[in-house]
Amino acid sequence: MKILSVTAQKPNSTGSGVYLTELMKEFEKLGHKQAIVAGISMGEEISLPFEASVYPVQFMSKDLPFPVCGMSDEMPYTSTRYKDMTREMVFQFKSIFLRELKRAMDEFCPDLIFCHHLYLLTAIVREAFPEKKIYGFCHNTDLRQMQSHPLGREFIKSQIKKLDGIYVLREEQIELVEEIYEAERKKISVVGMGYNADVFFDQKKRVSGKRKKILFAGKITQKKGVVSLLRAMHLMKEKNVELELAGGSGNAKEYQEILSLGRGENITFLGKLNQMQMADAYNQSDIFVLPSFYEGIPLTVIEAMACGNRVVMTDLPGVQKWINQNIENPNIDYVKMPKMYSIDEPDQEALPKFEEELAKVLDRAVGSDRIKATDLSRVSWRGVAQKVLGGCKNDEFKTN
């Protein structure tokens, strides 16, 4: 079978990019031929660890003279926010992506098309190729875009509900997809998340008796809870700890403000790391912390547990339920979410209490040496890929 994967973003640079790439790896192992249409910056290349036909859409070029569009307002690279796009920019975006998509259709002739994010590009693909089998993946940031601003909202809704099927990561997203896109429930299937067990595993590197190390990985932004984390570090009673933060940021001003707040001998910013470097970072840490205010299913939490970390994270809606259903003995301590001003913006007045609670939970995690044996056997990319392809063959979607 020939499978075409489509994303408006750079593959490999975000959680959804990792999701796309890992699925493509599994499709290759299952014997399928593949191609990809993806957005990149002028002068960059799409590098994949497997064979695939590549159809790049180059931003910062004559035909598309602005940075790659990002599904989050803060991306780990310079990007364009969808809410800032003009009609001319949308026209250019549509025209150049359609040019590469039509080339892929003519040269590759896909049997199945998988579009990542239930947003503008997926709607364009559905409208342009009504005769093709097209399925969309919800990565949560698409829901946030639809709820945050009106760009193309009615057009997107009209096309997303015409998809042959929609894949979501967890059950709680089903009702949101139904509500936001007016999609039929029978078209929506829960496929979950996987992780790369060949890279992320416990290497038994930790040395007892040393200073405890806390690790954060993700975009260095306020919406990921980084500012609150740095404040919580100063509130902790346990001082024999150090914090490392891995990740980049697309907002240079915010990043510099966070760097200033994080100055201290026990706080280190590692920058953006590749998968092998991240595996080493997990294995050299004792606790992984994710104080984010908005997530789908955070892949970093699964990777951290696979590497033997205890996890401290915000009690994000629906995430604890998914983890308890799919992971046996998860080593996670949850922090109650603060009152939210909007879908991904906390009420500033609620943050001091949240930060105090985060500090208390981190103190407890640092003081606990008991680590249960976490069983991640039910969380695999092979399992996700088989669910995805099984849903396409059946064309009859179920919610469990």
Rank of each mutant, 00 (worst) to 15 (best):
Q203W: 04
N394Y: 08
D286R: 06
E175N: 11
K393Q: 12
V57M: 03
R310K: 15
S249C: 15
I327N: 01
Q9M: 15
W322G: 00
D286F: 05
P76Y: 03
A38N: 08
H116D: 08
V312A: 04
L273R: 00
P110D: 01
G194L: 00
E172F: 09
R87H: 12
Q275F: 08
G192D: 09
P65A: 04
M276Q: 14
K237S: 09
K204Q: 13
I267D: 09
I323R: 00
Y55R: 07
K237G: 05
R263L: 12
M276L: 13
Y119D: 06
A281M: 02
R126L: 06
M278H: 02
K219N: 15
K29H: 10
A365C: 06
Q256D: 14
K205D: 10
L118C: 11
K237V: 03
I214G: 00
K133Q: 14
S249M: 03
S95D: 11
R211T: 15
V37K: 04
K321Y: 12
D198Y: 09
K224C: 09
S41A: 13
K25M: 10
R99W: 05
C392F: 11
A217D: 03
R378M: 12
M85F: 05
K186T: 12
I323W: 01
E51V: 09
L118P: 01
L163S: 11
L245S: 07
K339E: 15
V6Q: 02
I46R: 07
T399G: 06
E244Q: 14
E172I: 12
F66V: 06
Q275C: 07
V361F: 09
T314L: 02
V37F: 04
F200D: 01
M24S: 10
Q320N: 12
V68I: 14
S377P: 03
E254K: 10
W322P: 01
T122A: 15
K133P: 05
E74T: 15
H139T: 05
Y55V: 08
P65Q: 04
L151Q: 05
R231Q: 14
S208R: 13
N12C: 11
Y167P: 00
G17V: 05
L273I: 00
A385W: 09
H139Y: 11
F216S: 04
F59Y: 14
M337N: 10
I267R: 05
P150S: 13
R263Q: 15
K94Q: 14
P67W: 05
N251V: 09
S189G: 08
D363E: 02
Q58D: 10
A365Q: 03
K387G: 00
L112G: 01
Q92K: 13
P346F: 08
E51Y: 07
E238D: 11
F397D: 03
L64W: 06
L98H: 02
Q386T: 09
L215R: 01
K33H: 11
V54N: 09
Q145F: 04
K253E: 15
M193F: 06
F155T: 06
V54F: 08
I180M: 05
I267W: 08
G194V: 00
T21R: 12
A246E: 06
L120D: 00
M233Y: 07
K2E: 11
V311P: 00
S148A: 14
E355D: 12
M236Y: 04
V18L: 12
L151T: 12
M24Q: 14
Q147E: 14
V57F: 01
K10C: 07
